[in-house]
Amino acid sequence: MKPPPFTYHRARDVAGATDLVAELGEDAKFLAGGQSLIPMMNFRLARPEHLIDIGRLGELSFVDVGPESLRVGSLSTHRAVETADLGAGFEVVRDTMRWIGHLPIRTKGTVGGSLAHADATAEWCLLAVLLDADIVVAGAGGRRRTIAASEAFLGFYTTVLEEDELIVEVAFGRPAPHAAVTEFAERKGDFALVSAAVDLDVSSGTVSGGRVALGGVGPAVVRVPEAERVLHAGGRAGTDLFETCAQAAAQAVEPPGDDDAGTGYRKALVRNLVVRACEEAVAR
């Protein structure tokens, strides 16, 4: 469990990092918190020849809370977000952090690293997709572009990012005062078997719309239009509506099963976790 040889580079600024990665090509990887990359290197499942350490790019480490928006720098740790005051509109982002690994992981792992790694159960991917976040990336030669979260994640550990692109920020443009994320895993801190996220449009006890996202049910986090249609049809915020919504979500997905947790069980988890997320969201 020792990595193969690699060359270590430390970036001084974003431009330097992206230009260097463009020059070194596919054998180079950015190193942020290292909470996914380093274990993979230790197992020799990842064998980058060059590591570009962006850990000292302080300008990427920020949490900027506005009245209607939230911007989080890609180098912010999960813990920094967990301990920030994000206001009522983005409490869900703060509260979701507790689901990410264990405390030591949260003090090292970064927002950008998690988005770029694109695990199918990653909480940041789930939040970004649920809340229609924008992911801002920088490329070589000072290029910048904004990717809608809905377009970002392609499949197993795969995103639309180009080789030379570095995530610099994730921006949430719409407050979500009635959103919640919940998960189930056998142990606290494990990758979720299934994670469920909802963001309800609710007023005076009546739901008029909302968004539903799931993790762990396929190669990447997904939104579930079938479940969202139930919310858009509207109704009183309560068990009947939530269960109908959850049932629609469970029917819409076909999670891969294994010996310990089959597809049917995972679908049942989807159903029950969506209900739980709805209840938590409306209670917020």
Binding site: R187, K188, D190, F191
Partner: peptide
């Protein structure tokens, strides 16, 4: 790895 060999933690 501890991903699959599920040794319980203090939380469990």
């Amino acid at each position: 790895s501890f991903l699959d060999y599920k040794v319980p933690t203090a939380c469990e």
